[in-house]
Design a protein around this nucleic acid. Structure first.
Lengths: 241, 241
DNA sequence: CTCATCAGAGTAACATGTTACACACTGTTT
DNA sequence: AAACAGTGTGTAACATGTTACTCTGATGAG
């Protein structure tokens, strides 16, 4: 049998959730493209399951803003434009900078230990050039900071924004920035949070997000073959944050 | 026939959307309570439609964080705690203050005219004591500011947060604050945006949201019969924003 | 009285059948 | 050639059937 993109029959997870996972990763891998109409029938066939869980999962993804339904025609992946990148990072600035501030205030020795553990993992992955694992840990770190800041709704929102970012198919780890470079940006954040220095934590988080956001924006602009100036666009779209 | 809470057979809207509307308003009106398990069967029966659109709508509401499913047991309304109120207003501060800043930068005479139109409506509703219409317009105003600030994802998020707030069953228009009082808070925001004064717009929006948030938090604490100090709680939970 | 077992009710999750609609395509008229 | 009516295909939306699970509450053993 050829390699069917079958949902990997995980136990405990519903088929609906597995469909959501599948669609998200298929979009990231480029298997599902924007500007193409797909149908629930096709996808159910492809995954060898019935239309119900497929439709259920897609409805939730629509609610999350990843896809949209065209009545009686199918559904399509919602494209992510350069200006979306700027907006996403505006929002992340708005949410994560204050979160870093509050995480520093709420930091206990135990939390500091957990932070160091994650950073240790990041270090190892950076040295070994394990890109995938590195980004998983990076995600964990940001999520943990939101958690410490007691911002549960914020966590949810940021996680969603992160998925949208990945749809660009761009990664921050291009030739312009090595994993070690990104590591260096993270260290001041951790140091500041661990030592309870809230303003410093906020500042470090801001710098990290601005650096990442600008880089992604530039790549997105370039990727679309636009001749806009990313720097101007960034300034214009993130004013006030 | 007794007054069935039937979905009002609107055209153009899908049954799924009507179910979502119904559940949202039923929660606000107190018809659906927290800590009670309801089922798709019951609700479909009640609304005289099949289980599919009910389930579809509920799945989307779960994605939005309004309800949660308990496998093979039913679904329940997710309660909104006082700390949620603080978190929601933290997020709104994070999103709407910068949005006001940028709206002021992006303001054109045409936009100013539209803002004035909404404010005019608010004025009329305040005088006539039309609470419901007043809050609709208030919502429109906040939404419009996000729109002008070109923050589409932000709009979506804030709209969702607003629904969660309403679940408390508390209204800002208690005895402590009349509609006219709220009007007064809005005016400096509009004036600053219309005149393109970005920092003033941000400040005015901040003051408005802080005032509203503190009031709602106090009501929520009181409503739950807790003896916490709302002022301390507010300061603690919104640090950094 | 306490605890384990088990049958039954009720449910979400999943499968499949049905309907009404949007759109492309064809052939016809002007 | 261009505009238009008719027709067929594929789809989301909706309805209904089926399955496997979770809890409750009764029953009986220790």
């Amino acid at each position: 049998m050829t390699s069917d993109p079958q949902v990997p029959a995980q136990h405990g997870r519903t088929l609906t959730e597995q469909v959501m996972d599948y669609v998200r990763s298929a979009v990231i891998s480029g298997e599902l493209k924007t500007d193409t109409l797909y149908s629930v029938y096709q996808l159910a066939d492809r995954l060898k399951i019935s239309r119900s869980p497929v439709r259920d999962g897609l409805l939730r993804l629509e609610e999350a803003g990843l896809i949209e339904f065209a009545r009686n025609r199918g559904f399509r992946i919602i494209p992510t434009q350069p200006k979306d990148v700027a907006e996403i990072f505006s929002l992340r600035l708005a949410l994560e900078v204050p979160a870093a501030f509050r995480a520093a205030q709420a930091c206990t020795p135990q939390i500091a230990a957990q932070l160091n553990e994650i950073v240790g993992g990041l270090s190892r992955c950076a040295e070994a050039e394990l890109t995938e694992e590195f980004f998983d840990l990076d995600q964990q770190l940001h999520d943990f900071i939101l958690e410490v800041a007691q911002s549960n709704r914020g966590r949810n929102i940021v996680n969603r924004l992160r998925v949208a970012t990945r749809l660009l198919g761009v990664s921050t780890a291009g030739k312009q920035r090595t994993l070690s470079d990104i590591m260096v940006e993270h260290e001041p954040i951790i140091t500041a949070i661990s030592s309870g220095n809230a303003p410093a934590a906020a500042l470090a988080m801001r710098q990290h997000l601005v650096a990442t956001g600008k880089l992604l924006l530039a790549q997105a602009v370039q990727g679309q073959g636009l001749d806009l100036d990313p720097e101007n666009l960034w300034t214009e779209l993130t004013a006030g944050y």
